[in-house]
Amino acid sequence: MSDVRQEWPLWEVFIRSKSGLDHKHCGSLHAADGKMAIQMARDVYTRRQEGTSVWVVRSDHIVASDPGEKGMYFDPAEDKVYRHPTFYQLPESVDHM
């Protein structure tokens, strides 16, 4: 039984909670293929009306940044406040920016 389980690849599950919102990552599961992964995602992650749409993607198809390069990648943005658009005066007629 455990052998079978090891053969099933891991899938990442993304759920859209309602129309118009984006799909959010909510967890992962093991399944033999995409069809089974979608059904299992439905059963495991949408039992309490969490979703209106499900995406699954093989975990090994995700390309991720290297945690070891976190400093090099992200720290330089720390002191670049001018990249935030907070210095502009908005005209009165523009609501909700």
């Binding site: 389980r5 099933w8 599961l29 093991h30 299992m40 059963d43 495991v44």
Partner: peptide
């Protein structure tokens, strides 16, 4: 059930 996901599916 054979796997956790199916366990939940059958209970559902």
């Amino acid at each position: 059930a054979p796997v956790l996901e199916e366990d939940i599916a059958l209970a559902n």
